[in-house]
């Protein structure tokens, strides 16, 4: 079974990567399995200076998912280059750097610094948990276009734009990213949500709102990827609620070329490895001989052909 896939900047042996923010910089998970098993690693967001993030509690469980408001805590781009990237390089796994910022200048500066050390950039214009930057860029096509254009200019590697689902029209945002020079898309970031504790009559998460992730958001992500695949000619890294090889196949069929596994790493730290191990059998069971063959499959079906398969 051929699981390999070629994407801008990333020649990966399988389409599975841990999602940004759910894997830190890999050290913790290297206790669980060899990180070279992964298609790639998407690192936790990098900002120019170190950030402490939001107050605690920062997570809350919800039905089939969770809310988080970590607030982009990270040691800053210089420390990531010095203390984190060498470890991943040593493992021989392709690296994607998630870049965040408060201003266009910060996005540009972080990209300039970090891009020579990684294989691709994931531009985070969609974090819902910080007051400045993040999602304000990700919800206005014009603002998004401006920051993407400038980042693409300085980046040494292809730039994937991580889209926010907290918009009325996801296609409009995808088109803006494409026109601004993005090489690919990451879909989707979390949906803004809230949970209230009836005992204290306050939100459970200190930040008030948090980003909803987990199985609960998978249908939303599948729908958005399905829409964007038809409208924009860019490879898509799909994410949102992936817990099994079947979920991966669903994403591939909707139009994703690779996937990222996020919150599921928290309930099962071995999940990425397990999904990679199960993927060949799952693809085979549904009649595919490679990952490549499944990409966008839902769009290529002819009328009535599903009757023959069912």
């Amino acid at each position: 079974m051929n699981l390999s896939i070629k994407l801008p900047g990333l020649s990966i042996k399988n389409p599975i990567m841990p999602a940004s923010g759910c894997f830190a910089f890999g050290k913790e998970f290297s206790q669980c399995y060899d990180l070279s098993e992964l298609g790639a690693v998407i690192m936790k967001a990098a900002t120019k200076e170190k950030r402490f993030g939001n107050g605690t509690p920062r997570v809350a469980e919800t039905a089939s998912g969770m809310l988080n408001a970590i607030g982009l805590q990270n040691p800053g781009v210089e420390s990531i280059i010095r203390d984190e990237i060498p470890f991943l390089k040593e493992k021989g796994v392709p690296i994607m750097a998630n870049v965040a910022g408060r201003t266009v200048e910060e996005y540009v500066c972080v990209t300039e610094r970090i891009s020579p050390y990684v294989d691709a950039i994931e531009l985070n214009i969609s974090c819902p948990n910080v007051k400045e930057g993040g999602v304000q860029f990700g919800t206005h096509p014009q603002l998004a276009g401006e920051v993407i254009e400038q980042v693409v200019q300085v980046s040494h590697v292809p730039v994937y734009v991580k889209l926010s689902p907290n918009v009325t029209d996801i296609v409009e945002m995808a088109i803006a990213a494409s026109q601004a020079g993005a090489s690919g898309l990451s879909m989707i970031n979390t949906l803004t949500g809230m949970k209230i504790d009836p005992k204290t009559r306050t939100p459970v998460i200190a930040n008030g709102t948090g980003g909803l992730s987990g199985a609960a958001i998978k249908p939303i992500s599948i729908r958005m990827i399905h829409q964007v695949y038809q409208a924009v000619d860019l490879p898509i890294i799909g994410m949102g609620g992936i817990e099994s090889a079947e979920d991966v196949l669903e994403y591939l069929l909707a139009g994703a070329s690779a996937v990222a596994i996020g919150s599921a790493n928290f309930k099962n730290p071995f999940i990425c490895k397990e999904v990679i191990d199960h993927l060949p059998k799952t693809l085979e069971r549904y009649g595919f001989s490679s990952v490549e063959q499944a990409i966008g499959g839902v769009h290529h079906e002819k009328a009535g052909s599903h009757l023959l398969r069912s």
Binding site: F52, N68, F266
Partner: peptide
Amino acid sequence: EERMGCGIGACFACVVPSKDEKGYKRICC
């Protein structure tokens, strides 16, 4: 004690400010 996500130090849900240069500790790890 604190609400935790992963429990192994990757998600940064359970941090507490610390007095060292790094400025935080992860309660879980």
